[in-house]
Design a binder for these strands. Structure first.
Lengths: 335, 335
DNA sequence: TTGTAGGCGTTATCAG
DNA sequence: CTGATAACGCCTACAA
């Protein structure tokens, strides 16, 4: 009914359970003759390991940490919520996740959080600073598997990245901006931080497509909103006071301020933002925001857990698994 | 280390393992006094069932069927591929999936496929015919959990639907069509079958938004391409011969024909199609197709399996779980 | 290098 | 109604 077991393999290979186990988990200390017999038996019977039983017997409990910025609004709040949602389901599969909140741009705090970590694997969303990269190396050296989440650290020793292709996200934003805007005019780009890698990649993608395909639009120099609603509002107000804006691409957080500013502007610019939060969702509904590019936080959490499990199991992890789809929301498909 | 077990619960409740089990799985035959004691002990210890051990002990193997149209091109091919991809991983979790291919519009064949099914749950993608709905009822009556996949059968006894909100998909297509097209003109809608529910819902959503928001565009009567490349090519050729088309919304399969016809047309219409296949991907690249609305087949398979498992476990299933995101692909974000 | 025996947490069987 | 006790498939001492 439920397939061949180690017993079946042992019997057809004419060896003991222990020998089968040693071969299966290549622990060595097995004569090549016995090994061959076992392998043949595995092939012959079509044996596949029952992970549930294996984990049960070795009392395996996966301990995964998520080191992510805290905050009760915007994207990070969605991420926290997704983590909490998955938690109960994961407990049943013997996966314990611990969430370690940090502050968004506080490198020292993030390093500290990574310092005393006690787990099998960790998913981290942190700044791209040398101190952090060192910490990643240290973790790896001490046997912890590391994946980056949302913001990659490609220079580091991390083993996988779970998140968007941010260049593609920026390119996509540009494409829709260009196609929505027939006439010429000036477009404002607001990043959260110009030194953050993901924001930079989005900017780069956006700029490139604008140059390649939509030269009737003029890009203003990118400004830095610090993921803060007040700053964003001020920046938009200043920019639109100086000249009429036909488009705004907002890359980071602070969309509350953006919405306020756009509502006050004389002519409504085409507005594209990132992350489907209550604010951006409302913006879509009332027409302030035209498009929301979203990375599904639930999908990100699920993918991260899956990869961390595969890594701790010693399985191959394809880069494909970590790719989070870019969700595009408009007024007509808000979920 | 790995939390309290039934033993702990039994000890603190001062009853035997068997009694704890009876309460936990509410099998009845337990005095209310004992039941109360057990429940108190569960609460006190914070016990959570170890699913791995439970499944091991009862030698649980989940047997799920997928009854889906076969075909080696287009969407159904992607679906098959996704199923095959998931299979090996699922085997490790004691989930055996069997794929039962049918023919797209062959109701009798679909009924036959549903007839002799031997599994715990089934995901079906089939026509919306009374015979099929009856078969669903019969399956449910015989204890098989049923979910619909991609094409819903809302009138039936199915317990969940995994797939797109097709009305929203149509609305989204209309929104982008409208925004991409500044000038007025005529728009052609091609469905696979006008009697298929999902296609109809997409049409409905598309029509409605066009009326509500983009009255400068004129909708031609919807035509039926039978998910066949040749028919689609002919239909598009005929329509654009009669008048200049500014837009095409293709709802079903047969995109190869669509691409050929559009490439021959004098003026390139804004073209929006469904499902990211090799053909539509190529169409995006070479500019023949402007937008592809895609439902992620991998996500659909994963969601379907998750729901089938929850159903057979007797867990609550929220309608949320089955909602597949609408992925929007453009030239700049093909993956 | 190989094998045996016991246990992981849960469920099922069979007496009391 | 209740409680021992033996599986389930795998892993891990420990012994040979």
């Amino acid at each position: 009914m439920s397939g061949p077991t180690v017993h079946d393999v042992a019997r057809t290979a004419q060896v003991s359970l222990a020998t089968v186990d040693r071969v299966l988990n290549n622990r060595g200390g097995v004569s090549s003759k016995a090994e061959a017999k076992v392998k043949a038996a595995v092939a012959q019977t079509g044996y596949v390991r029952n992970m549930a039983a294996a984990n049960l017997s070795r009392r395996r409990v996966y301990r995964f940490c998520f080191v992510v910025p805290s905050g009760d609004t915007g994207f990070v709040a969605l991420l926290q919520a997704a983590l909490e949602r998955e938690r109960s389901r994961l407990v049943e599969e013997q996966i314990l996740i611990q969430i370690i909140p940090t502050h968004a741009f506080d490198v020292a705090g993030q390093v500290a959080a990574l310092r005393d970590l006690d787990c099998d694997a960790v998913a981290i969303m942190a700044s791209e600073a040398p101190e952090i990269q060192e910490e990643v190396s240290r973790l790896r050296a001490s046997g912890v598997r590391v994946v980056t989440l949302v913001a990659d650290l490609p220079q580091s020793d991390r083993e996988a990245y779970v998140g968007l292709d941010n260049v593609a996200a920026g390119r996509t934003a540009a494409e829709f901006m260009g196609r929505f805007l027939g006439a010429s005019g000036e477009v404002l780009m607001i990043a959260g931080s110009l030194s953050s890698r993901d924001h930079n990649e989005r900017l780069m993608g956006f700029r490139r497509v604008m140059q390649e395909r939509f030269q009737h639009l003029t890009l203003l120099p990118a400004v830095e909103g610090n993921d803060d609603a007040q700053s964003v509002e001020r920046l938009v107000a200043e920019a639109s006071a100086a000249r009429p804006l036909v488009g705004i691409y907002a890359i980071g957080a602070g969309n509350k301020g953006l919405v306020r500013a756009v509502q006050k502007a004389d002519a409504k610019p085409v507005t594209i933002v990132h992350e489907l939060t209550p604010t951006s969702r409302q913006g879509l509904r009332d027409g302030t925001i035209d498009l929301v590019l979203d990375q599904d936080t639930s999908a990100a959490v699920v993918a991260a857990v899956r990869i961390m499990r595969d890594l701790t199991e010693g399985r191959e992890v394809s880069a494909e698994t970590g790719k989070i789809r870019l969700n595009i929301f408009s007024r007509e498909n808000i979920q």
